[in-house]
Simulated scan of single mutants.
Amino acid sequence: MISGIDSTILDARSLPANDNVNPYAFSIDLNGEWFTSKGAMIAYYGTIDFSGISAYASRAAWVAARFSSPLYAQDWVVASGHGKLVIGDRGNDINSYDLDAGNLTIKQTNLLAFETGLELKQSIVPGFVTLIGTGKFLASSNGPVIFVEPPFRADPEALLGWADCPSPSQHYDYNWMAQSLMAGVQGMFGRNSGEERQYDFTGAGTVLLQSSEVQRHDPALLRIVEAQTQMLDNRSAGQLGQRLVARAQQQ
């Protein structure tokens, strides 16, 4: 017998249905299909199949219609079948949200899963995707989520997403940069703190913030940059390479 602070033994019947197991894990009562982020599954009961977006779209045209983001297609799978599917994200807080004929743009690295009633599109803001329609989705955060109304400026690393409001513009505080020599040096190499650069929100809507400034690795951002470098001539590409090397050494 295992004992501990909380040694409750769960099974397929006692796991919650579409609810949190604890603050860091969520149990999906799967009866059909969900889109899930690759690597988010930590356990499951029942008969569940996981197929890549491209493979599933070849036999189900609705997948291509609902998942309209080629940049992130390789980072997602379709979970199909029947059973309890438990989702986690490296010990981060997990919350479920419901959209009702709405739209929400969220940081791609924090989006864990969503129902097929929602459509995913690639946002014009790098590193973010947009969900449109009606349905439930799961997102992780480093600490509790804070909901704020515009007008508002947010640290890009603390920003989780925004709902029913225009995309943000970028605001640079050059007074802060001028007062800090180190901040100016870091800015030259592409390193910015929230005091120097913020996302500026206006209009009606809701902004979602996580309670920390922990930056998550997003491999798709490298793919975006690599695609853009194709437009550079050899001289410009060489200069970019030198700056990236200097940045890596400075960090």
Rank of each mutant, 00 (worst) to 15 (best):
A43K: 05
A43T: 02
Y44T: 00
Y45P: 00
D49K: 15
D49A: 15
F50G: 00
S51Y: 02
I53H: 06
S54F: 07
A55F: 06
A55L: 10
A57F: 00
S58V: 04
R59K: 15
A61C: 06
V63T: 06
V63R: 02
V63Y: 02
A64C: 07
A65P: 02
R66W: 02
R66S: 14
F67L: 10
F67R: 04
S68K: 13
S68E: 13
S68P: 01
S68H: 08
S68F: 03
L71H: 05
Y72S: 11
Q74F: 10
Q74H: 14
W76A: 07
W76D: 04
W76I: 09
W76T: 13
V77H: 06
V78I: 15
V78F: 09
A79G: 03
A79K: 03
S80E: 12
S80H: 13
S80F: 10
G81V: 04
H82V: 14
H82N: 13
H82R: 15
H82L: 13
G83H: 06
K84R: 15
L85V: 11
L85M: 13
V86Y: 06
I87Y: 08
G88F: 05
R90T: 01
N92M: 10
D93R: 12
D93W: 06
I94W: 07
I94G: 10
N95A: 12
Y97S: 04
L99D: 06
L99F: 10
N103E: 09
L104I: 15
L104A: 13
T105Q: 01
T105R: 03
T105H: 00
T105D: 01
I106K: 02
I106T: 10
I106A: 04
K107I: 02
T109N: 01
L111G: 02
L112V: 03
L112R: 01
L112T: 00
L112K: 01
A113I: 07
E115I: 08
T116Q: 03
G117N: 01
L118M: 12
L118A: 12
E119F: 03
L120C: 08
L120G: 07
S123Q: 08
G127C: 05
V129I: 11
V129M: 06
V129P: 00
L131I: 02
I132V: 15
G133Q: 01
T134S: 09
T134R: 00
G135P: 00
L138A: 08
A139S: 14
A139V: 09
N142D: 14
N142R: 08
G143V: 05
G143Q: 05
G143T: 09
G143L: 03
P144L: 14
V145D: 07
P150H: 10
P150D: 10
P151R: 00
P151Q: 00
R153G: 07
R153V: 08
A154I: 06
D155W: 02
A158N: 07
A158F: 02
A163T: 05
A163M: 10
A163Q: 13
C165V: 03
P166V: 08
P168C: 11
H171A: 14
N175P: 02
N175H: 13
N175R: 13
N175S: 14
W176T: 13
W176N: 09
W176M: 10
